[in-house]
């Protein structure tokens, strides 16, 4: 039984990481119907900007320093996101969706390749500084939970609530939903679709930066290719939950995290990655638009 609870804790904390990254995928998809493969790279850049900021900033008291690093990286990545959208995606707004997708992959490859060049980040992994102390928070009956696991979990929940409020209780959110529902009509109603999309990218990229820093804290090894595997899993989580749906990203991330933990615990660790994809396929075959996704009926 101890193992079960430990697996539960492990699964939830890993799931919250997936969920954090999945939120960015799902937001962009909701508005543009674009799988933003570059999101994983913005996540990586978020971690690296945190790394560089932490080494440049003068040392002052711990918690405010963490907040400064976090908010600055979020701001930096928000800008990066807007730049990517402006120069790589906007010119392709009218082209077939596959082109935008290939462009997204191109951006992702380019950022990775440049990041690996020795005069940028270089390929070797780096140690992410300990911005927050990591202690064992809870160690009852053999189940252990660290502060950072708790922080990540809390941050994921808080960000999701914030995002939910942003989307459903603000004017910007209403505009976003309008663009997502029908871009042309929204435009006719006086909504500046380009602005909404740019803002969406800003928010999504800032979220990716936050995820990058939180991941860097709990798993202090960062490298230019760190986004690839995590990004893919997070994306799978977003699809599982129903891509375009914020709650779906959260639930999908948690499910993938839990499934992986349980697959190791009660199955075989060597097939763990296959199990996650297997679950995804099963869900999609029976519910083609994901758990929370609405089945869209195409009109002729």
């Amino acid at each position: 039984m101890t193992e079960f609870f430990q697996h539960l804790v492990n699964g939830l904390s890993l799931g919250s990481v997936y969920a954090l990254i999945a939120l960015g995928y799902t937001m962009v998809y909701g508005v543009l119907q674009l799988i933003n493969f570059a999101h994983a790279e913005v996540f990586m850049l978020g971690a690296f900007s945190g790394y560089y900021l932490a080494s440049w900033l003068p040392p002052f008291s711990r918690e405010p320093r963490f907040v400064v690093v976090l908010s600055l990286s979020m701001a930096i990545c928000a800008c990066i996101g807007v730049v990517i959208e402006r120069f790589a995606y906007r010119p392709l707004r009218q082209s077939p969706r596959l082109n935008a997708l290939i462009t997204a992959m191109g951006v992702s490859m380019l950022i990775q390749a440049i990041g690996q060049l020795p005069f940028f980040m270089g390929p070797s992994p780096r140690f992410f500084p300990e911005l927050l102390p990591n202690r064992t928070l809870l160690s009852a009956a053999g189940v252990s939970l660290t502060t950072l696991q708790a922080v990540t979990l809390g941050a994921a929940v808080l960000l999701m609530i914030g995002l939910h409020r942003l989307v459903f209780h603000t004017r910007f959110g209403a505009a976003m939903r309008a663009v997502s529902f029908d871009g042309r009509t929204a435009g006719l109603m006086g909504i500046d679709a380009n602005r909404v999309i740019a803002l969406t990218f800003m928010v999504g990229s800032a979220l990716a930066a936050a995820a990058g820093i939180l991941v860097g804290l709990s798993y202090p090894r960062i490298e230019p290719t760190m986004g690839v595997l995590l990004g893919l899993k997070a994306f799978v989580a977003a699809v599982l939950g129903g891509i375009g749906n914020i709650r779906g990203a959260m639930v999908g991330g948690t499910i993938i995290g839990l499934v992986e933990a349980m697959a190791v615990g009660y199955g075989s660790s060597s097939y763990r990655d296959a199990v996650a994809f297997g679950i995804l396929i099963l869900v999609l075959v029976f519910k083609p638009s994901g758990i929370f996704g609405k089945a869209v009926v195409e009109k002729v």
């Binding site: 101890t2 193992e3 430990q6 697996h7 492990n10 699964g11 904390s13 890993l14 990481v17 991941v215 798993y219 090894r221 290719t225 760190m226 690839v228 595997l229 995590l230 992986e260 933990a261 697959a263 190791v264 615990g265 075989s268 660790s269 060597s270 763990r272 990655d273």
Partner: peptide
């Protein structure tokens, strides 16, 4: 005897099994 894949970040599930 547990496995992971290079590039993973979380090994707690495997380690939980090992701890048991």
């Amino acid at each position: 005897d547990q496995s992971y894949s290079a590039g993973d970040i979380d090994f707690r599930s495997q380690l939980t099994e090992i701890r048991a």
